[in-house]
Nucleic acid binder design. Structure first.
Lengths: 145, 145
DNA sequence: AGCATATAGGTGCGTATACACGTATACCCT
DNA sequence: AGGGTATACGTGTATACGCACCTATATGCT
């Protein structure tokens, strides 16, 4: 019983997932007018920054399973925001952000900023900053073994 | 372009989801010998603590959409770790942890502790603690409007 | 050249997540 | 008693996530 309490009080995974759900809903509320889900927005931004990235590179940057990325690209492709085309190496597939994609990012940016502002206001600037710093380090945790 | 850099550097949502993916993989690696995914483990623990909870209560505790919880209960039910039964109020459905469920938690607990230890070791005790504190506050952020 | 291996990527399956919408039961007020 | 509302929950649909497994192309070694 004491052990179980310890889990709900101290589990890093549990907290991270809970916050993921909470914060995702917040960002989703703000960005929804853009037609982009937060996941799609951040993926599109990453793809814009490394234009003509291949699937592996993008997955690496996003700390995402390659196969997950492949599928996450689908909704963006369906909306015409990106195109996936063969590169010079016949194995690689390049992710190209279309003009529509760039416009979508431009439209969503102010909404994203509102979301950021809301988080900062809710937590207080100091805690908001600390949170992001703590999360920053954690991203670089390596798999065991 | 500067704006895009700002997104990948400062977006709380992005960091949270990335870390969610990274940390989930770590915990999954450790708990996988128990046959429980981290999500299932933490849900089972929560259900054990508030035994005979109804769906709404459990969803509230987990900061999870009610409908998500309903579906997340399914794999646990299939494995015989919980039973969902009607309560006195004919509308409510109670989540009952079975003996098999309690045993599964017992078996998984040491694996969970290893995962916690690995995280603490990877980040350093101080940063690990700070991270969990920061996440703790964030869970209580309310929806806008 | 020819085969082994490494690299790039996709599919099948199962789980996790949430919104919109629908159903059934309880409660309350006249 | 009867009708309106509130409460408790499920389903349909779409996205997000990752492991196991598979295919195709490139590369390197003999």
């Amino acid at each position: 019983m004491t052990d179980l309490l310890q889990v709900v009080q101290e589990c890093g995974f549990l907290r991270l997932r809970e916050d993921g759900r909470v914060v995702t809903r917040v960002y989703d509320r703000f960005t929804q007018a853009s037609g982009l889900k937060p996941t799609q927005f951040s993926l599109l931004v990453a793809a814009s920054l490394i234009d003509r990235a291949n699937v592996n590179q993008l997955a690496e940057i996003m700390a995402m399973e390659r196969t997950t990325l492949t599928r996450n690209l689908r909704p963006l492709e369906k909306k015409g925001l990106i195109k996936v085309m063969a590169g010079e190496d016949r194995r690689t597939r390049l992710v190209i952000v279309t003009d529509a994609g760039r416009n979508a990012v431009k439209r969503a940016l102010p909404l994203w900023k509102e979301a950021q502002g809301y988080m900062a206001k809710s937590l207080g600037a100091a805690r908001w900053c600390m949170l992001r710093e703590a999360l920053d380090v954690t991203t670089r945790v390596k798999m065991p073994r």
